[in-house]
Measured scan of single mutants.
Amino acid sequence: HDTTVHINGLRIEVHGASEEILKWIEEAARRGVEAEEIKRWVEEALK
């Protein structure tokens, strides 16, 4: 999927993410993980 995830006011563009990654992002956000940190993880995961 190409999608934009909104976390604590930060937009994260996610290209080619699976449902699993999207669920993981939402879970991390709920746990209060910094949005910048999530963004870094997602970029690494999608390389």
Rank of each mutant, 00 (worst) to 15 (best):
E19A: 13
I38H: 00
G9K: 03
I12R: 00
S18F: 06
W24H: 03
V5I: 15
V42S: 00
R30H: 08
E43D: 10
E19T: 11
I7G: 03
I7F: 06
T3V: 14
E20K: 08
H1L: 11
E34L: 10
K47Y: 11
V5R: 04
H15W: 15
E20I: 09
A35D: 04
E20S: 10
I7M: 04
L46K: 02
A17Q: 04
K47L: 10
S18I: 06
W41P: 00
K23I: 08
E26C: 12
I38Q: 00
R40M: 07
E27R: 09
V33L: 12
L22S: 01
E37M: 10
I12A: 01
T4L: 08
H6D: 10
I38W: 04
E27N: 10
E37K: 09
G32C: 02
A29W: 15
L46E: 02
V33R: 02
L46D: 01
E34P: 15
W24P: 00
T4Y: 10
S18W: 06
L22R: 08
E20W: 15
R11T: 14
S18Y: 06
A35G: 07
K39N: 04
W24K: 02
E20D: 10
G32N: 04
T3L: 13
V5T: 04
E13V: 11
V5S: 04
E26M: 15
A17S: 06
I12D: 01
H1T: 12
I38M: 04
E27T: 06
K39M: 12
E19S: 11
A28M: 15
I25C: 02
V14Q: 01
V14I: 13
V33N: 01
E34H: 12
E27K: 05
V42R: 00
E20A: 13
W41L: 06
E20Y: 15
N8S: 07
H6P: 03
E26K: 13
K39S: 07
V5A: 03
D2G: 15
R31Y: 10
H6L: 12
G32Y: 05
K23S: 09
V42H: 00
V5K: 05
K47A: 11
V14M: 07
V42F: 04
L10C: 06
R40E: 04
R31W: 13
E13S: 11
R11W: 11
N8R: 03
L46W: 08
H15P: 11
K39D: 01
D2S: 15
N8M: 03
A28R: 01
T4G: 09
K47G: 07
R40G: 03
A35I: 12
H6F: 08
D2H: 15
A17G: 07
A17L: 10
E13L: 07
E44K: 13
I21P: 00
G16S: 06
E26F: 15
I21E: 01
V33P: 00
R31L: 11
A35V: 10
E27L: 13
L10F: 07
I38K: 00
I12V: 06
R30L: 14
H6R: 08
H1Q: 12
R30G: 10
H6V: 15
E34T: 14
K47Q: 10
I7A: 04
L10P: 01
T4Q: 09
I7N: 02
R11Q: 12
E43P: 00
I7V: 09
H6I: 15
G32M: 04
G9F: 02
H1E: 11
A29T: 10
V42N: 00
W24S: 01
V5L: 12
E19V: 13
I21T: 03
A35M: 08
I12G: 01
K23F: 07
A45N: 07
G16Q: 05
R30C: 05
V42T: 03
N8W: 01
E13C: 15
G32P: 01
I7Y: 04
D2P: 15
I12L: 06
A29M: 15
R30N: 11
E34A: 14
W24E: 01
I38E: 00
A17H: 04
R30F: 12
E27S: 07
I7Q: 02
G32D: 02
R11N: 11
T4R: 04
S18E: 03
E43A: 13
A45S: 06
S18D: 07
H15N: 11
V5N: 03
R40L: 07
G9H: 04
I21M: 09
W41A: 05
E36W: 15
I12Y: 05
L22H: 03
V42Q: 00
E43H: 11
I21V: 09
A29H: 09
E26Q: 14
I25D: 00
V14K: 01
E27I: 06
V33F: 09
S18H: 06
T4M: 08
E37H: 07
E44Y: 14
E20C: 09
T4A: 14
A35W: 13
W24M: 05
W41N: 01
S18K: 05
L46A: 03
L10N: 05
H15Q: 13
K39Q: 11
R30T: 08
E34D: 14
V42W: 02
S18A: 06
V14W: 08
E20M: 13
E26G: 07
E20P: 04
K39R: 13
W24T: 01
T4E: 09
A45K: 09
A45V: 09
I25N: 00
G32Q: 03
E20N: 08
E27V: 05
H1R: 09
A45L: 12
I21D: 01
A45C: 09
V5P: 03
A35N: 04
W41D: 00
G9R: 02
W24D: 00
V14R: 01
E20G: 08
W41G: 01
I38P: 00
L22C: 05
I12T: 01
V14F: 10
L22P: 00
L10W: 04
I38S: 00
T3D: 11
E36N: 09
V33I: 10
I38R: 00
I21G: 00
H15T: 14
G16A: 06
E27C: 12
A29S: 09
L46N: 04
E27Y: 10
E34W: 09
K47V: 09
E19Y: 15
H15K: 12
R11H: 13
H6Y: 11
G16K: 05
K23N: 06
T3H: 14
A29F: 15
G9S: 03
E26D: 08
W24N: 01
I21F: 06
V5C: 09
E34K: 12
I21Q: 03
I21R: 00
E26L: 15
V33H: 03
A29K: 10
L46Y: 07
W41M: 07
E37R: 08
V42L: 08
W41I: 08
T3Q: 12
R11L: 13
G9I: 02
I7L: 05
E34C: 07
E43C: 13
H6C: 14
